[in-house]
């Protein structure tokens, strides 16, 4: 694998391989000294054109646990607009000698543009509304772990709820669950659905909530109100939020997931701590392990010997 830019691009084989590799990384993370020499001498640059403390910290932690050198370049958009072009920024960083660039950008497609300008591996840390493949992998891993589904997700019923149209998480999560064999339904009013899709869609959460194995809630952004996409947060929450009544109808084993940061009282009106199926914290924990697996797959020797603890 040269790049990780989208789930669709790497296909089912690579998804399965990365999830298996994540098992090893989880094991490493449980050690007293969770650090291995696997990527010693390799340099990973986090190039973030959009604020994201969580994803950035997760990638930094992952790279450090594999002993890679880490550079972080957080670019305020205003300074880029004033001067240096995207291409110049990327070529400057590449000239310092980096093996992988983790890039996040508010515009869809930037990881593809960037890979034409450097030989470094490109990891998509989120591009516009388009893709967020490491989020999808950590979500798939979390489901596999929580439900013990190592053999794929055949027959698994997944509902992704919320602002699908503007969500890179929704696109990547849908792809990864489908690749693994799950049945995905998108739940949103038509204003928040993509203009055209083959994935089944509904605006009736109540019809689904008692049947799903995974309820995946997306973050609802306040600016959507001013764009006349939904009337107000109260109505959104009433139709598409996880209310106590809906939570009571969830199957016993059903998982509740959220990519964070959560709007409490909007997407979710119950305390996740009181929801037995909520795996939101596990998602964050697994994020580090999945990103370790991705970096190891892209930059590592392929030898598991490199995953012995450092002295």
């Amino acid at each position: 694998m040269k790049h990780l830019r989208s789930i669709a691009e790497i296909g089912p084989g690579a998804v399965a391989r990365l999830l298996d590799l994540t098992d090893h990384m989880v094991e490493i993370n449980l050690r007293p000294n969770p650090k291995v020499p696997a990527l010693r001498g390799r340099t990973v640059c986090n190039l973030f054109f959009e604020d994201s403390t969580r994803t950035r910290l997760s990638f930094e932690t992952a790279a450090r646990r594999l002993s890679a050198d880490v550079m972080t370049f957080a670019v305020k958009e205003s300074s880029v607009n004033k001067g240096e072009s995207l291409r110049d920024t990327v070529e400057t960083i590449a000239a310092m000698g980096v093996d992988a660039i983790v890039i996040r950008h508010r515009s869809s497609g930037v990881p593809w543009q960037v890979s034409a300008w450097t030989n470094a591996s490109i990891v998509n840390g989120g591009d516009g509304w388009h893709a967020h493949p490491t989020q999808a992998l950590l979500d798939a891993y979390t489901v596999r772990q929580a439900l013990g589904r190592t053999g794929g997700f055949d027959g698994l019923q997944v509902a992704v709820v919320g602002d699908i149209r503007h969500s890179r998480v929704a696109r990547s999560v849908t792809e990864v669950f489908q690749v693994l064999g799950a049945d995905v339904t998108l739940v949103a009013p038509a204003t928040l659905l993509p203009p055209a899709t083959d994935v089944p869609c509904t605006d009736d959460l109540d019809a689904l909530v008692g049947k799903v194995d995974v309820l995946y809630l997306l973050r609802m952004q306040r600016e959507r109100m001013s764009e006349a996409l939904v009337p107000d947060l109260r109505e959104y929450s009433a139709r598409f939020g996880l209310t106590p009544a809906r939570a009571a109808r969830l199957q016993e084993h059903a998982l509740v997931m959220h990519p964070g940061p959560m709007n409490r009282g909007v997407e979710i009106q119950v305390d996740p701590a009181e929801l037995p199926g909520a795996v939101i914290t596990q998602q964050v924990t697994n994020g580090v392990a999945v990103r370790m697996a991705v970096l190891f797959d892209l930059l590592g020797s392929g030898s598991h010997d490199d995953m012995e603890s450092t002295a």
């Binding site: 869809s108 516009g128 509304w129 388009h130 203009p195 899709t197």
Partner: peptide
Amino acid sequence: VMHEGRCCSELGLPG
């Protein structure tokens, strides 16, 4: 950015 339809939906680009 591009025509509104199936393609822009997949690419995450405004239609």
